[in-house]
Write a protein that binds this DNA or RNA. Structure first.
Lengths: 243, 243, 243, 243
DNA sequence: GATGAATGAGGGTTCATTCAT
DNA sequence: AATGAATGAACCCTCATTCAT
């Protein structure tokens, strides 16, 4: 189907030192993982066939078995790898939002979303709303959504995925939110006794409503809807923690 | 699996009446649906085999095809039926919690959780927490959790499930929450300008944290954890809407 | 598919004498046979499903079994009935060629094809050619071709069809050909010692070449090709039996 | 059926050479085709099951799918291969008739059937009759007959078989017949202006009458009947083309 | 006599996995 | 270490046929 059968990773050094087969090996391994992620995310565990993954990766089926031992282990490796990759992206939220994101674009004007800019005084509500937009943008990104659905679907069968399931609302976002609340407390706008706990609640509220509104990422979340969700969340927290 | 091949539902035929063929038909249809729900919830769409469903239902495979036309249509009928059943149960939350529930038991002693008792003055916080326990108990019930995971997993492939996905946090719980907030506003304890909107936020917050803590219902939610979640949520809303 | 479900042959007398269920019976039997012929000819024995025949006939499947006992017996009844019907049509060749005929139209100008007109003297060759066109038109008719293919396909399995296979080149055409040769012998144009034997050869020659050229009736036989075949056959027989 | 499960074609490996994997592959492919021909010819397309073919070939079912992709493609490959094989046999008619042939044995003593011996002068009629016996023997051979029936049966569904259907009366026999007529013209016994066209007619006549008499090869053609057919055909052509 | 529902067997096809090279 | 070929088990679905009304 894809056509571009790669019979061996030729991109590297073939003429020079014959050594370093490890590079070749790792390259193949990486190609397999990449293909596996793509197909598992698109098709789900059962519908994904090892044949398709092998073809997409440009390797033989047996190579997959040599590297990973079986479909299950390949699945876990692929999903956990992707989970880590997504978590890393959470840690440093994209300055330029991914083009495929069906969620609301951040467009956080001058606020201190998660970027860590200096706080503009007097608009804690706007700052919280902008933060919410960031959270939604990051969590509803297409790949992240597909990964979440996949993990939720298989969490019952593969217990090792459950931590991944928990990481769905990653600590890094909570940390950023807590920092925001702390700054606004410092300016005297808010009075948040437990910023981390409050941030955890804020993220949970945003995530649930965002997932609900986009049916867990299977449909794009309208810009307007995202704005409303974030404004309402900001309003709630400002009310609760106003100084 | 179950093995007990029932060659004809003999439970009818009672009273010596003519036999009500319609009853027989509906009974078979119901048996198939019941078996389908059980197996789809346990195994997921792809792993569930029509053979297994037929055996569990005590009918022939072809009978399933006569009634539903194919695996896909059977799946949708089963899931949508179960969704409605669960929604109905939401509407009138169980007074006695189901014994299989891995989630937190309500234990809401004298509070006005969702039961609609008269409000005990002065303990809005406790009332909200008790309400939260009800919400968690109902939403983390085993069957409801499995159904949710199934719907989330297949929402991408079967768009007709998406409304079911949205119904995952049903309006009836929101209504009950709004009513609670309204009553507490009436007593002067709270001042909630938009009780329905606030209830929606409260449910979302509870649900997300509950799902997160129980990894979407694959693990029982510890009593203590549930209590903490509910207390924190109650605290937030009391802070935000204190009179 | 066909939609026009006939739940009972209503075309007859319902109000009058309640008697004569035989007519109803025979009507249903006929409807089944008609549907069976249509579907067997179109699909072949194995691909034809009893379900499809029942639907086409507007009766229940079990009715078919009541009448015919099984698929095989229904098949034989249908094919043999159709064989007789086709043979009858051979006996009195159509004056107006059937509109669906993919074969060459007769267009036998003034000749004595099989119509039995008086012989125009001096053009035995043309008369034979015209006769050939009649033969091809009749034998390559669409239904006749489908029936032939069906009989040939199943002759190995159902010996009772073999006579039908033999009847594929029916005696009535041979008789007409023999009569033609006899008339031309009477006029002194030809000298045919054994007209029946010669006619049998002529029919065989025409049939084989016609079937070959139309790939056993699966493709229409071009007008030109039919003309050539018939002219060549006429030439051969005129050469052989010229006076 | 055959039961003798061969887990790997061990017939190779001869000579202690390296093993020729290509040979192994081709051997398996050939075994599948052989089994497919046998079963398709015996059972027809629909009744032949891929399971049965796999068992007969001593391979796994999936191996068939690996090689041919599906039942239809296997069918076409098998039939077209057999058609070519039969055509090859036509080209060099068997000196010793196959033992399984239910058709008339040639018994053509010293004549110049198709063997190409020098023409014995004065017996053009006998030569033509002997040629006819050869044609019948070859065309009514058991496998050739079964193949013809199969092709006729499926020509409507698989257009790619139609050429095979046309090749049913192969050019090589026509060529041999034309050569015979030409030689007899050279000796002055006959005067055939268009030997090829005449041979085509002769073959058609023989084939049709032979198929008719043997019900398309489902019954053996009696020796006597074959002799009569051939004699009559020879008589016709000698009459038509006598010098 | 006719119906709709039910049956058990079997069909083609695809899968995850393992040899043999 | 990597490949192409091969395996056996299973899957969804359809069929001809028979109860029960």
């Amino acid at each position: 189907m894809s056509g571009q059968r790669v019979h061996g990773p030729r991109e590297g050094r073939r003429g020079g030192a014959v050594g370093r087969p490890a590079g070749r090996l790792a390259a193949k391994r990486e190609a397999i993982l990449q293909a596996a992620v793509a197909i598992f995310l698109r098709e789900g565990y059962d519908r994904a066939s090892v044949d398709a993954i092998a073809e997409e990766a440009g390797v033989s089926k047996q190579t997959i078995y040599n590297h990973f031992g079986g479909k299950e282990r390949l699945f876990l490796a692929a999903v956990e790898g992707e989970r880590d990759r997504v978590a890393t992206r959470f840690a440093s939220p994209p300055q330029s939002p991914p083009p495929t994101a069906p969620a609301a674009a951040p467009t956080a004007g001058g606020g201190d979303g998660a970027g860590g800019a200096r706080p503009a005084p007097g608009d804690a509500r706007a700052a919280l709303a902008a933060y919410g937009r960031q959270v939604l943008a990051v969590l509803l990104e297409e790949r992240a959504s597909a990964l979440r659905r996949l993990i939720i679907a298989e969490a019952g069968r593969y217990p090792s995925l459950r931590p991944a399931c928990a990481h769905g609302e990653p600590e890094s976002l909570v940390t950023a939110g807590a920092e925001l609340l702390r700054r606004r407390t410092a300016t005297g706008e808010l009075a948040v006794p437990d910023p981390t706990g409050a941030a955890r609640q804020l993220v949970a509220l945003l995530v649930q409503r965002g997932l609900h509104a986009s049916t867990y990422g299977t449909q794009p979340l309208a810009e307007e809807a995202a704005a409303t969700l974030c404004d309402e969340a900001a309003e709630l927290f400002v009310r609760a923690y106003r100084a």
